Amino acid sequence: MKNIITALDLQGQTELIVNKAVEMADKFGASLHLVHVVAPVGTYIATNLVDPLAGMETALLPNELDLIETHKNIANEKLDKIEVQLKSGEVIRKVLFGLVEDEVVNYATEAGADMIVIGTHQHSGLSRLLNGETSVRILHEAQIPILVIPTVEHK
């Protein structure tokens, strides 16, 4: 194993997921890729649909571009803090923009990843049905092994 991708939402139990990914990377002498995806804002943008009323493809508005840039900056700051605490081999950080499952799987392919480490929130059945579970969608799309770390959400 040469490359392990760790997809992080940078919320809740991030440390648990990072620790397991570091353990795997150290065990196999692999490079660790810390990846966070900033998702688009808005229903049409997030699902890449065309507005049926306007018949036009969606576009990002200037204030949305500022919001996206702010989210990227915050993500980079959080990844900085995580990286400083790591005592692992090579660490590569990436903040991407798009649909989480698509970006993680595409990045894993481009990086020649041997494994993806992701967390899964233990939502209720209704919440999972409505939101879809990003980790489940990645499981369906990825062509490499995936280590899913269950996390418990605190209410």
Rank of each mutant, 00 (worst) to 15 (best):
L126F: 12
E64H: 10
D9S: 09
L61Q: 13
N63C: 01
I144Y: 07
T58V: 10
K20Q: 13
I74V: 14
L10C: 02
K81S: 12
H71Q: 12
E141Y: 10
K155T: 15
A30P: 06
A59W: 04
H36R: 03
V100T: 14
I17A: 02
G42T: 04
P62C: 02
Q122G: 15
D9I: 01
V38D: 03
A59F: 10
E57Y: 12
L49P: 09
L139V: 08
V18K: 06
Y44A: 08
M24K: 14
L139R: 07
L65M: 13
E103M: 02
F28I: 01
I4M: 06
H123T: 11
I45Q: 14
E15Q: 15
L67C: 08
L79V: 03
E101N: 14
S124G: 14
V35K: 02
T109Y: 11
E141Q: 13
E83Y: 09
E83T: 15
A75V: 05
K2M: 01
H121E: 09
I144D: 01
H71G: 02
H140E: 15
V152W: 03
I92A: 08
K94R: 12
S124R: 10
V35S: 04
A25L: 00
L86Y: 07
T134Y: 03
E110D: 14
A25I: 02
G55V: 04
V41F: 14
L32A: 04
H71W: 09
A30R: 05
V91A: 06
F28D: 03
A46D: 03
K2L: 00
K2N: 12
I138T: 02
E133A: 13
L96G: 03
I146D: 04
D114C: 02
L147M: 13
K78W: 04
L53I: 11
L139A: 12
G112N: 00
E110I: 06
E153N: 14
P52G: 04
S31F: 00
R93W: 01
H123I: 04
T6A: 09
H154N: 13
L61I: 06
L61R: 15
Q11N: 15
L79C: 04
A111I: 05
T109L: 04
D51P: 00
L67S: 14
I92L: 08
D26Y: 05
K155A: 15
V100N: 07
V117C: 02
G112T: 05
P40A: 10
Y107C: 00
G112L: 00
V41L: 13
I74P: 01
G12R: 09
L61S: 12
Q13V: 06
M24Q: 10
E83V: 10
D80N: 09
L34K: 00
E23R: 12
K81H: 03
R137V: 12
Q85D: 11
I74D: 07
E57F: 11
T151P: 03
G98V: 02
S31T: 15
L10I: 04
Q11V: 12
K78Q: 06
A142V: 07
E15C: 05
V117N: 08
V105P: 07
I138L: 06
E23T: 06
L96M: 06
E64W: 00
L16E: 11
Q13W: 00
D102E: 14
R128W: 00
Q13T: 14
E90G: 09
V37P: 06
E57P: 09
K20C: 04
K78C: 08
I17C: 00
H154P: 04
V22T: 10
E15H: 11
N3Y: 01
E133V: 14
I92E: 08
L16T: 15
S135K: 03
V100I: 13
K27L: 13
G12Y: 02
